[in-house]
Amino acid sequence: MPAIGTGAGIDATPSLPTTFCGIELAHPIVNGSGTFDAIAARRAFGDALVEQFPFSAFVSKTVTVAPREGNPPPRLWELPGGLINSIGLPNKGLDGYLTHDLPELARLPVPLIVNVMGFTREEVARLVDAFAEREEVSALELNVSCPNVETGLIMGADPGETAKLVERVRPLTAKPIIVKLTPNATDPGAVAEAAEAAGADALSLINTIRGMALDPRTREPWLGAGTGGVSGATVRAIALAQVQEVARRVSLPLVAMGGVQRGRDADDLLRAGATLVAVGTESFRDPLAGRRVAAELAELRREGSNPGADAPAST
């Protein structure tokens, strides 16, 4: 079993103190929900994972009220600049998470943010209420990319639906509520404004973008569910544009993600208006990507002037 090491050129203790919704973090690099299995990594690497944890806070996989098996295989398709995934949010459900996953994640050396999703406002309210008094949980992230079965509208694509959801759960907890925006909304800025007006404490963006791939032999859809979510470097420019747009329209702190592979990518998103930056797809290639990105970002900030940051990249 390979050992976790700091790797060539990685600062063993990247430090860029950040405050997010009243939570003190060592640096602004976290993980995207569902892109890093901390429990499996702990089993594989033991205490080394705790000592060199890649992120300043950990965002859990999505939790739903009932257990989910996820989508049928195949579930992944590699792109030249990223990945299409059709995992389908497999999880143990609320009861299983509270019994099995939460005790394990509470042992991590960083604050825990739990991502939740429901198909109705009442399902989301049940999840938020269940975590409201759990001191192991520092904040909650609402995955609003699914349809409300009562209206047929994607909760995070319609400003009215988003507002009603946040208004329903806001009284249930004093913990920070982060609304994870979908990039597939006609006007993400309007959804962001609705979430802010309804009482959200922060926003995160972008989620994956819908895409598909064809089997090179049969020319039929490769993924078992037909389509999946595109992530990785190929969505970086879209993420940067949407983060800047949302930052101009709300005053909430933002968790930005989309194609982050190096410290300069994180710096770009911070300059666009983000408070935190999440690493996602890159962690599949490099499990210590979060730590490396944090160290590279800290080095950029130590350099101060960051030469060339304002100049267009060469092609």
Rank of each mutant, 00 (worst) to 15 (best):
M257Q: 08
V260A: 11
Q261K: 10
A256S: 07
M257N: 04
V260D: 10
G263D: 04
A256M: 07
V250R: 09
L254R: 11
V250H: 03
E245C: 11
L254Q: 14
R262A: 10
R249P: 06
A256V: 05
R249T: 08
Q261G: 13
A247K: 03
D265R: 01
V250D: 00
Q244F: 08
R264C: 05
V260C: 12
D265H: 09
L270Q: 14
A247W: 13
V255N: 03
M257W: 04
G259K: 12
G258N: 09
R262V: 11
R262W: 01
R264G: 02
R271G: 13
V255Q: 04
L254E: 04
M257F: 09
Q261V: 10
D268H: 12
V260Y: 05
V250T: 13
V260P: 13
V260K: 12
G263Q: 03
V243E: 08
D265E: 04
D265I: 12
G259M: 10
Q242C: 01
V260H: 07
D265M: 06
M257A: 02
V250C: 15
G263R: 08
A247H: 04
V255I: 15
A272K: 15
G263E: 00
V255K: 02
L252F: 10
R271Y: 11
M257S: 12
Q261A: 08
L254F: 03
D265K: 04
A247S: 12
Q261L: 06
R249N: 00
L252R: 11
R249C: 09
A247E: 04
Q261P: 00
V246R: 05
D268K: 13
D265Q: 10
R262K: 09
D268R: 15
L252P: 09
M257E: 08
D265Y: 11
A266C: 07
A247G: 06
R271W: 13
L254D: 06
R248G: 01
A272M: 14
R248N: 14
R264I: 10
V250A: 12
R262M: 11
S251F: 00
G263M: 13
L252W: 01
R264Y: 06
V255F: 05
R248Q: 14
S251M: 07
A266K: 14
A266D: 04
V243W: 01
A247T: 07
R248S: 13
R249D: 05
M257D: 02
L254Y: 09
E245K: 14
L252G: 04
L269R: 11
A272H: 07
Q244E: 12
S251A: 14
P253Q: 02
D267P: 07
A272S: 06
D265G: 10
M257P: 05
D267V: 09
L269K: 03
